[in-house]
Amino acid sequence: MHCVGAKSEVSVRMRNMTAITSSPAQPAPNLHPAGFWQGARDTLPMLIGAAPFGIIYGTLAISHGLPVWATLLMSALVYGGASQFIAVTLLAAGTSAPIIIATTFIVNLRHALYSAALLPAVSALPRSWRAVMAWFLTDETFAIVFHKLDSGEPVRLARFYMGSALAMFGNWLFWTSTGIVLGQSVPGIANWGLEFAMVATFVGIVVPLLKDRSHVAAALAAAAVAIVARGLPFKLGLMAAALVGITVGVLLAPKAQASVEAQP
């Protein structure tokens, strides 16, 4: 609903934008739409928040023996903190590549929800822009862009989005590099228990998600299966736990929510 409103808002503003650019004499400060720099500036708190994760990821990857080029390349190619943490941890535990790739897929599935939420707004943009923008769709950029669209303030969507995205991307590569340097220069940092930073991060992400009974039940079911099925080969216990947790959540999902979402 909000998104549909935001979309028409954006296209109207975009048309206004063209009018403003073609007649520069007309001063309209209130209508000046947010562009690239505003997107980067709005993302500033997220940039600071991501710094410790970038550092820990870089340090963890290096101390687990991942080469420097691969540590940086993963930040550029995968560009998803949670999945990178897990991949590095699994890699250190000697997990095979197909399992790591499957786990990456599951952990990053949430991005599909973000793309669905932004779809009405971005569908007015050229396909090639959408292809580029999608590469940078993270929790942070989604939050900033969705909030901006939701506010109804004028925005040049593609520029604003890329401002947030490139600030976030450059920031991630920078702090990854800082972590790499730390991992290389501080001897014995592998024994500091940095893995716990990942554990704490995930606990901190999950707790706000436990917003109703169905989410609590999903978490409890996933936890129980993960413990009981820990002996299964190929980390299948993790997959089983995720599937059981999701199923329990869906079965206990509030009915009202389902019927609202079922409407077009």
Partner: peptide, 9 residues
């Protein structure tokens, strides 16, 4: 429910 289940698991 994916983030809840996966991150907990």
């Amino acid at each position: 429910y994916v983030p809840t289940a996966v991150l907990t698991a």
